[in-house]
């Protein structure tokens, strides 16, 4: 049995748990806790260790989805989660510009190890005050070759599209 791994990351409250829940075939193994530090100002429950979702591709192949914890004090987990990943989705809460700098730090973190294929998902596009993918690209100053996709994490078609776009980037780097 071969397993491949994708990582879903982003700032606190970006929608990582929601994203994985929407597409996973198994009940998502989340380690949600009541928020402690500054996160509790934003929400009641936050992911403290990670989320884990799974999609069986066949008898011999399975895709694992890992969501990174949002709170800063769990940063050490990222490194462990990112080992051997095939690709990365960076989720952004498009309605909260106060998280854009943190998002850049997260991208920097992952890219400082190696050039991992990644896409940026402009999440919560269903909310009225969401910044558009084009605006997010400029706000985060993403290079033109990085895809910025509209996303609504609780909509399965939308999540599928983000993953397919990421797979397309991975495909370009794969070997025959």
């Amino acid at each position: 049995m071969q397993t491949v791994k994708m990582v879903i990351s982003g700032a606190v409250n970006a929608g990582k748990t929601e994203f994985i829940k929407t597409i996973s075939e198994i009940e998502v193994v989340s380690t949600e806790r009541r928020a402690t530090d500054d996160t509790k100002l934003i929400k009641k429950e936050t992911t403290v260790a990670m989320d884990f979702g799974r999609i069986a591709v066949g008898d011999d192949l399975v895709l694992h989805l890992f969501g990174t914890p949002g709170q800063k004090r769990f940063d050490f987990m990222w490194e462990i989660l990112s080992e051997g990943m095939l690709g990365l989705v960076i989720l952004v809460d498009s309605t909260r510009p106060e998280t854009f700098r943190e998002t850049n730090r997260i991208i920097d973190f992952f890219m400082s190890y190696r050039e991992t294929p990644y896409v940026v998902a402009a999440n919560k596009q269903d909310r009225p005050n969401a910044w558009s993918p084009d605006e997010l690209r400029l706000a985060l100053r993403l290079p033109t070759h990085i895809k910025v996709l509209p996303c609504t994490a609780n909509d399965r078609e939308s999540v599928k599209l983000v993953l397919l776009e990421l797979l397309d980037v991975i495909m370009q780097r794969s070997e025959d």
């Binding site: 491949v4 597409i23 999609i55 069986a56 591709v57 066949g58 192949l61 895709l63 599928k160 993953l163 397919l164 797979l167 397309d168 991975i170 495909m171 794969s174």
Partner: peptide, 8 residues
Amino acid sequence: VTRIINRI
């Protein structure tokens, strides 16, 4: 990769 794409 193609297999994963088809699955999704």
